[in-house]
Simulated assay, not measured.
Amino acid sequence: MSYYEPLVYIVPEEEEGFLLKTVLQKRLMVSRKLLSRIKLTEQGIMVNGERKYINVKVNAGDRVEIRMEAEVSEDILPQDMPLHILHEDEQLLILAKDAGIIVHPTHGHYMNTIANGVVYHWQQMGVSCRFRPVHRLDQETSGVLCIAKNPYVHQQISEQMIRHEVKKEYLAFVWGTVAEPKGTITGPIDRDPEQPHVRIVTPDGYSAVTHYEVVEQFASAALVRIWLETGRTHQIRVHMRHIGHPLLGDKMYTLPQFEAEAEGLEASGCLSRQALHAHRLGFQHPGTREWTEYRAPLPGDLSELHRWLQEKS
Rank of each mutant, 00 (worst) to 15 (best):
T184Q: 09
T106K: 12
A278G: 12
V47K: 08
L24V: 03
Y206F: 00
E261K: 04
T288P: 08
V58Q: 04
V174E: 06
L35K: 09
I236R: 02
H107V: 09
V174I: 08
V153K: 10
G244M: 07
Q195G: 02
G143I: 05
E259F: 03
Q79F: 01
K39N: 03
R289Q: 11
D75L: 01
R32E: 11
L92I: 05
P256S: 05
W308T: 03
L247N: 11
L24Q: 01
L40V: 06
R273S: 07
V72K: 14
P246D: 05
E15G: 02
P203N: 07
E293P: 07
E15F: 05
K182E: 13
R32M: 02
Q160T: 12
T141Y: 08
I102S: 06
V201F: 00
E42P: 02
I189P: 14
Y120R: 10
R67C: 02
V56E: 13
G176D: 14
D89G: 10
S207D: 08
I114F: 02
Y253S: 14
H277K: 12
M29A: 15
V178N: 07
G143W: 02
P6N: 09
T177R: 10
P246F: 00
E90F: 00
S303L: 11
V72Y: 01
E42K: 10
R191K: 13
Y206W: 01
V238W: 00
S31L: 05
M29E: 15
E69H: 10
N55W: 04
P6F: 00
